[in-house]
C-alpha cells in the first residue's frame, strides 16, 4: 500500500480529450458497420422471426443497457443505506 496521492501532471493517452473523441468516433463507425453488416449475410441459424429483423440485437443491446442502468438508479433510493449501516 505504497501510494502517493500527488496528482501526476502527465496525462496518459486515454486522458487526452482528442484521443477519447477518436475512440468514440471509432466506436460509432464500428456500430454503424455492424448494423449495416446485417444486410450482407443470411441468418440461417435463426430460431425466431425477430432474429431476422434488421439489426435486432443492436437496438436491443442499446435499449436493454439503458433500461438496466435506469432500473439501478430507481432501485438505489430503496436499498441505499449509509456505509456503516450494519456496523452501528
Amino acid at each position: 500500500m505504497n501510494d502517493s496521492t500527488s496528482k501526476d501532471e502527465t496525462q496518459s493517452w486515454f486522458e487526452k480529450r482528442g484521443n477519447v473523441r477518436t475512440l468514440i468516433g471509432v466506436l460509432i463507425v464500428a456500430c454503424i458497420g455492424l448494423a449495416v453488416a446485417d444486410l450482407f449475410y443470411e441468418n440461417d441459424h435463426a430460431h425466431f422471426p425477430i432474429e431476422k429483423s434488421f439489426a435486432f440485437q443492436a437496438w436491443f443491446g442499446f435499449v436493454v443497457f439503458v433500461v438496466i442502468v435506469f432500473l439501478g438508479v430507481a432501485l438505489r433510493p430503496i436499498i441505499k443505506r449509509s456505509e456503516d449501516y450494519y456496523d452501528r
Binding site: 456500430c31 435463426a46 442499446f62
Partner: peptide, 18 residues
C-alpha cells in the same frame, strides 16, 4: 458463424455505445 459473431458484436458494441 457469421450470424453468431455479428449479432453478438451488435449486442455488445451497442451496449458500449449506450
Amino acid at each position: 458463424t457469421a450470424a453468431h459473431v455479428i449479432t453478438m458484436l451488435q449486442l455488445l458494441m451497442f451496449a458500449v455505445l449506450a
